[in-house]
Design a binder for these strands. Structure first.
Lengths: 210, 210
DNA sequence: ACCACACCTGACTAATTGGTTAATATTTTC
DNA sequence: GAAAATATTAACCAATTAGTCAGGTGTGGT
């Protein structure tokens, strides 16, 4: 038996447990914060004994790192690439739509990430930080070309990315406040589309792309 | 001597200590989170013995509540009122400017508030939550009238408020990320004006007010 | 059957931390 | 300047919690 097969078999139960633990951990870290979330509370939520958690993850920080990494992976997969070959309007529209859907479908990941940044990104490795710098610069360069070609209004591309970023992320991070203000218990499917339409509408017009 | 004078005198040292403690606490709560910030770490930052902290504030939760309350007061004072008597353009411009300045001048307050909301607003009293609902509804009503009068584009007023809120708040909460992306150590005075101009420009145009 | 290895977990420990207390010092008031 | 009120602080305690460990149980391969 080669090592790939072995991994697949013996890793099965391992993988399942890890997923369960990480899911519980994500929730606990959001609600209680890094220090406030206890290994015991994660264990309780995952319905596993505490020692079992620490069998799969060396320590609490390791769990947190795994949660963070998962978030970054998902972010990269979901919105890492912007479709730039059909012009600014499609690019912005699709970017907004993808990011809004991410916010509504995975609010916890967004929240974890937000808290990490707010607290100074102490756990984020250097490469994760500079990676984003590269990402933004790359996209900004494309926007700048569109501006130079007169395909969209002359707005600072970097700040435009911040704007889209913040406006979309807001629906995940400030979920609680938004629901309170809208006097609702939960978001519904049509809310997602409404937000996408609203943001696309106003931001496209703001970019002279109406 | 009347009680006002008495308060003024005996409250002097008390007030000074409290300010020092709250300032230290604010920083600690931002960096470490509620559970992560220890009374000792607050004491160290305030350069006071721990027991002295607990002489002025019954317990840790009390300190946190005081920090939160101070934040809400400042928010209300700085941006509680929108100047609505000069039409939508001035109203939006001034609101954006006030909120951006708040973000750049008091990022820690914004961060504390953001973390509180992200974690489910567990410490926010009911009145604080519903107060904001009233606030948003009131402002939204004004926007709606402008829309009905054809003074601005037909955009959902509530989501417009969310948009301005998030875009401005972002510069406080995601300070770390933004500085990294812009490859800067700190913000400067001209950054504030640039952000105000950028956001006013794009949002006003988005609202058909260019 | 049996071996090797992965998986599981109750019980324990050392360190941290919120909060108390009681004794001392300083300031205010008259 | 003495009494009263306020402020200060070291020492202590009970509770919580991250992480260890030793002794299990299951399981797949031969």
């Amino acid at each position: 038996m080669n090592s790939a097969n072995k991994e697949k078999k013996t890793g099965n139960i391992r993988a399942k447990s890890k997923v369960k633990i990480l899911s519980a951990a994500r929730t606990e870290f959001v609600i209680q914060g890094y220090k406030g979330a206890t290994v015991q509370s994660i264990a309780d939520r995952a319905e596993l004994p505490k020692a079992n958690i620490l069998y799969y993850f060396k320590n609490k920080e390791n769990i947190y790192h795994a949660v963070l990494e998962h978030t970054l992976e998902m972010w990269d997969q979901g919105i890492g690439t912007i479709e730039t070959d059909k012009g600014p309007k499609v690019a912005i529209e699709k970017f907004i739509a993808a990011k809004v859907r991410m916010s509504f479908n995975h609010p916890e990941s967004s929240k974890i990430y937000a808290m990490e940044i707010i607290q100074g990104a102490q756990h984020l490795k250097e490469y994760a930080r500079t990676y984003q710098r590269q990402w933004v610069r790359e996209k900004a360069k494309v926007f700048q070309q569109w501006i130079d070609n007169g395909e969209m209004a002359n707005v600072d591309p970097v700040h435009l990315i911040f704007l889209i970023w913040s406006a979309t992320q807001h629906y995940a991070d400030f979920e609680t406040q938004i629901l309170t203000i809208m006097n609702r218990a939960d978001f519904e499917e049509e809310d997602v589309e409404q937000v996408i339409n609203f943001l696309s509408d106003i931001i496209l017009r703001g970019c002279g792309l109406a």
